[in-house]
Design a binder for these strands. Structure first.
Lengths: 342, 342
DNA sequence: CTAATTTATGAAAACATTTGCAAAACTATT
DNA sequence: AATAGTTTTGCAAATGTTTTCATAAATTAG
């Protein structure tokens, strides 16, 4: 490997080294079958000697795809998004795409700014998290005519194809389970809902389902808790210390439920005989925690994978490839943290 | 907002709409102070009307920075890496950079391929995870003269600046703690170490520390367990069911320790009175789990942040900015899962 | 051994920008 | 009102590729 003394090698450097024209080198990469195998060999060696690396930026300005996909999520700090992104990334990497990743931290203004930046980089497609976005975001997407999918949530009439689970269904499943066990004294713990359509949808449907069964949740049992195990543990402890405590606690996600489980243990309560705790999500660890958590599975890996596939298809074949939404059904998972009231 | 009927607007479209030359539009973006405020206004409106979005690909071929940084990690599925990446991303986004993210799943061949792809995209810098990489990776980095930092681990003489914690120190801290409590019957649970220098370093130092205190770990107490709560729970259960069980279990990371804690509970053991369980990492949730986990904190957020800062500095100011390594010291965190043997 | 095909290569234009240089348009000064 | 000095703008070349079209080389047929 002869070190290249001069600056970065470009296609012309390689052409000279191989004693061919730049066009031929270009063909070597893009249509190798058009070359005589002797020239191919020659170029091969020249590429190696010069340490040449193709410049995608230069290709991109010819209208050739950039080979990048913009991924916009709220935050990687929630393991569930990390899981979705990992699956998405695997799916698109298998087809030669690389992801540009950015997080907006539930700030819809930042989401718009990030999307613009993605477009400056000429991404071939974009994934957004959730269904709810600033109108400006959708308009930008419309005007650029760029493939886009909304990942994580599903809704039939979403503005762009949505691939994910139906939060309403998830919320209903868990609420019905708790009701069917016979609970009437029910508390709820949900994350703040600003800029977070997922949490909002779940909370609404849970309350509606309870109400239509004649159960109303008392105000002081309606907890808004930050997405963190420590906060939920604290709030649960406070809730469980009251003389008058609920027989069941429905949590908006498994992180909150995990904290609530710890909080119950710390308060000296036994789950599920003293109190039922359920979550939504079936995160990693939810099945191993003691007691194992009753929850509703949102198939994160599957969602990420399907979203990746769908977007790549839409990119590669823009006419027929513009697929529709896909519902990845949530599934009730009964484990040990729920039981009939004492 | 007049919709742009024709294809994508380029700088020429804008120039026509504003009745100036393309150069002036270019200056509008790159050196606005050179323009008369009247022309600036005119261009401003033209940009808006045409819906023009700058093309970074076209800029990049002029040697202008691409504004992207390649981030190469083993996997996002380990929450700790997700946390590091999030912090890194925040740090560089604040300076206008966007990250290209890819994971290699502990496959060093893939790492090389991904790095090449990053270079094709003309990233302005690269972060790799851990100190250990294929020689080809380093050579490629050398030949391209691109800023690079090794994130997560620290070692004094690393080939590129390393920013992270010293795993040896972390391993030593936890081993010394367990020894100082008086344990002699000690088991270890570590993840598979192929392609994973972090885990390897930790295991070696733990064993060495124990040995130099006269404690040898029996073969059947030397567990190799996949990084997952369910696997570690199973393995821990098996370990704890034996008639002859250890008085302490040192786990290579907090995920394994969490599973071990669950496994102990499931086996009817009380931690820490029956058995001590400790981890390494201080992951999210480690302080809230019941009993709270004794561990060594690896400051993930700080590491990600510092790495981001360092890389951006090296990119922006290549001469003086090529900073050195940075050690983010691990810290022993004593909690409730450890106690002297019965 | 030509002529007719087919295959392989090169020249030049195109892509969307930036930038050095020079010209034009202002200002200030006399 | 003319000149000198500044500020603002445009022209054209450059960036690293791809691609169309044309030409040269190789192959096949007659």
């Amino acid at each position: 490997m002869t070190a290249n003394k001069s600056k970065k090698a470009d296609i012309i450097t390689v052409a000279k080294a191989a004693r061919v024209s730049p066009s031929t080198v270009s063909r070597y990469f893009n249509h190798p079958e058009l070359l005589k195998s002797a020239t191919r060999k020659r170029i091969d060696s020249a590429v190696r000697r010069t340490g040449y690396i193709r410049n995608r930026a230069a290709q991109t300005i010819h209208g050739i795809r950039s080979g990048t996909i913009g991924v916009l999520i709220p935050t990687l700090d929630h393991a569930i998004f990390a899981e979705v992104v990992q699956a998405f990334s695997d799916a698109v990497a298998a087809q030669g795409f690389t992801i540009l990743l950015a997080s907006h931290g539930y700030d819809l203004q930042r989401e718009y700014a990030i999307l613009r930046k993605f477009l400056e980089h000429r991404v071939d497609g974009v994934v957004l998290t959730g269904l709810d976005h600033d109108e400006a975001v959708f308009q930008l997407l419309d005007s650029q005519e760029i493939p886009c999918v909304l990942m994580w949530n599903y809704a039939a009439g979403s503005r762009y194809p949505s691939i994910g689970a139906d939060n309403e269904q998830a919320g209903r499943l868990i609420a019905e389970h708790v009701l069917s066990l016979g609970h009437r004294q029910i508390a709820c713990m949900f994350p703040p809902t600003n800029g977070n359509d997922r949490a909002l949808a779940r909370r609404e449907i849970v309350l509606t389902t309870l109400r239509s069964a004649g159960v109303t949740v008392r105000d002081e049992w309606m907890l808004t808790t930050r997405y963190s195990i420590s906060d939920s543990k604290e709030d649960a402890k406070r809730l469980f210390c009251q003389t008058n405590r609920p027989s069941a606690l429905i949590c908006g996600n498994d992180i909150l439920a995990t904290g609530a489980l710890y909080g119950a243990t710390a308060s000296g309560l036994i789950v599920p005989s003293d109190v039922t705790v359920v979550g939504i999500g079936d995160f990693k660890g939810s099945s191993e925690i003691e007691p194992a958590l009753t929850t509703v599975r949102l198939p994160a890996r599957r969602i990420g994978h399907e979203a990746g596939q769908a977007l790549v298809t839409a990119i590669i074949d823009p006419v027929s490839g513009a697929g529709g939404s896909l519902h990845c059904a949530p599934e009730f998972i009964g484990r040990q943290s729920s039981a009939p009231p004492a």
